[in-house]
Amino acid sequence: MDSFTFPHFPCDKSTAHFALFRNVENAPSLRQRIVKVSTMPVPVGDSGARREDEVERDAVNFAFIDARLITSRTHLRTAIHQALLASVTPGAMRTRGVHSEILFNLNPTNNITESFKNFGLSDKSTSLLVVRIGPGASSFPSAASCHSAPRPVLTHEQIQSQVRELMKDAVIGSIVPLDDPEQGLASVTDWGAVKKLFKLNTEPAVKSLAGKPEEEHVVVDKIVTSAVAMKSVMQ
């Protein structure tokens, strides 16, 4: 279990908790749950929502990212940061929620369905990065608009373990540290698939490094991360 903190965002979204799940066994049923939740009627007012619906919505309220297409910690961090940025900029969101915005930002094109298909959960997924945007323990002083909210004060660790339990309830698999050299992201990334998706095989930067995988991965990671960062101003 790991987190990025972004103290410059409003405190209800200043933290991104994430975990890398491997050997995921319940991808098909998880996907069905998400589809079901997303087609549930949107509650109108206070009385509209049924309690069970809300609980179910919260239980799968994560970004599920296919970890094979994530090239580095910075890549993931950039996608989350740009999604948060869109969520606080009026009119900048391209999808309905901040979690789906992460998936959208990761995709090279502006097609939302395609971005879910490429980066989202599929029935065959076995390695997933699960992300939950949430409140941080400490917030930026000048951005503290929700300090008065009657929220019980929890430490970062307490929030983290709560989120971890929620994630473990949703996903059947084993959590591995992202930076683990043998089990972590480095062993999951499918560089061929990344290059194909971003059409990098014909680019001079990548072509000139054919046969030198280590250097090539550095370059591909740079390009892909930059592409995510500049998604909002892509032509």
């Binding site: 910075t74 740009q82 940025l85 740079k222 390009i223 930059s226 909002s232």
Partner: peptide, 15 residues
């Protein structure tokens, strides 16, 4: 970056 020219990578854009 795509052409192999050494430049800094982009980390955020808020146009």
């Amino acid at each position: 970056l795509k052409s192999g020219v050494n430049v800094p990578q982009i980390l955020m854009v808020d146009a």
